[in-house]
């Protein structure tokens, strides 16, 4: 199993912390995660949220690609809102900053995002955007005429471009084939099935619902990614003490943004969504997702912006030392496992 940090939300989580500092701390947390062996770090993206969640995974993705050296950088552009070539160009730039380390997990717009942009949350629109992304990143000049895109337009006034019926998005990404996942609820799972790309469930969805969502999305030998709220400390009691307010706070902000549902108690949320505890508890929970969904790539939030930066760094280290080896080091002898 592989592990990522995030998705980093970067919202204003406490009055005492300015957003510029939240962002800088998040970049430092990415570097910490890289040091402790995480495979990736993820920049979240949501638009028009009352608590000021990051609205550009492209800008933050570029910053993460610049600060880190080896780990992959996950970006989560919301599709269905603008011409997909803007997204294609931005991702190609990020991929060149990181020398080929980008993963894209496209998101389906929320109701409010689609409203604000006059966009579409439909499966058809997401599939069309994905086709444009792939053509844009591919080696050949292309044209694309669909219900949602006209690339390129033909305009008799544009004399310089007369006769050019194709375009080439430049620059190309550094890597040969851009990893592309899709994140969200029912529509995202449907897109994953049709486009045959990995479905990446967001952290706020509960395990019983995930069984149906993942159904038919897993490809033989392919990546099966999942995002979860995760916090780890030396004891389960300490993990709750440090993180429960921060995770509950984030969840309330997700509810305010129209992303998560808000009627559940914290205990109910923990049961099938959050992974909070000591190493053994976290390992046991992760095995549960592996067993029931076939998950083999977990993006663990760990970074909650109302928490003290130092506590987050310690949790990232502990996760890297106590959890990652359990799932990555096949054949790890028990004697060594017990050392940490």
């Amino acid at each position: 199993m592989r592990f990522g940090l995030g998705p980093l939300t970067m919202e204003v989580a406490a009055e005492s912390k300015k957003q510029v500092d939240v962002m800088e701390e998040a970049l430092e947390q990415a570097v910490t995660a890289e040091w402790w062996g995480f495979d990736s770090v993820w920049a979240g993206e949501r638009h028009f949220t009352p608590d000021h969640f990051n609205s550009s995974s492209s800008v933050i993705g570029a910053a993460l690609a610049q600060r880190t050296e080896f780990m992959r950088v996950g970006v989560m552009p919301v599709l269905g809102l603008v011409n997909a070539m803007y997204v294609a160009e931005e991702v190609a730039c990020i991929d060149n900053i990181g020398n080929g380390r980008t993963i894209v997990a496209a998101q389906i717009p929320t109701e409010n995002e689609a409203f604000g942009w006059g966009g579409s949350s439909s499966v058809d629109r997401a599939l069309d955007d994905i086709e444009v992304l792939r053509k844009s990143w591919g080696p050949n000049p292309f044209s694309h005429h669909s219900e949602f895109h006209t690339i390129p337009m033909e305009n008799p006034v544009h004399t310089q471009a007369l006769g050019l019926d194709k375009i080439s998005v430049q620059p190309k990404p550094a890597q040969l084939e851009m990893p592309l996942w899709v994140s969200g609820g029912d529509a995202a799972a449907e897109v994953a099935r049709i486009a045959k790309i990995p479905y990446f469930a967001p952290a706020h969805l509960a395990l019983p619902d995930l069984v149906d969502l993942y159904e038919g999305t897993q490809q033989e030998g392919g990546i099966v990614p999942l995002a979860r709220e995760v916090f780890i400390a030396p004891t389960t009691e300490r993990a709750y003490e440090l993180a429960s307010d921060a995770i509950a706070g984030l969840y309330q902000r997700l509810v305010r943004a129209g992303i998560a549902e808000g009627s559940l108690s914290f205990d109910e949320l923990v049961r099938d969504r959050f992974i909070i505890g000591d190493a053994d508890t976290c390992i046991e929970q992760l095995y549960r997702y592996e067993r029931e969904l076939g998950v083999n790539y977990v993006v663990a939030r760990i970074a909650y912006h109302e928490m003290h930066h130092g506590e987050t760094a310690k949790a990232i280290q502990l996760f890297g030392q106590a959890i990652v080896p359990e799932f990555r080091m096949f054949g790890l002898p028990d004697e060594i496992r017990k050392v940490v």
Partner: peptide, 19 residues
């Protein structure tokens, strides 16, 4: 869409410069 890859996404790249 220029043949030599002229940078198309300035604010994205500005994120890298800021970092």
């Amino acid at each position: 869409f220029w043949y030599d890859g002229y940078c198309p996404s300035l604010l994205t790249v500005a994120g890298g410069i800021a970092a």
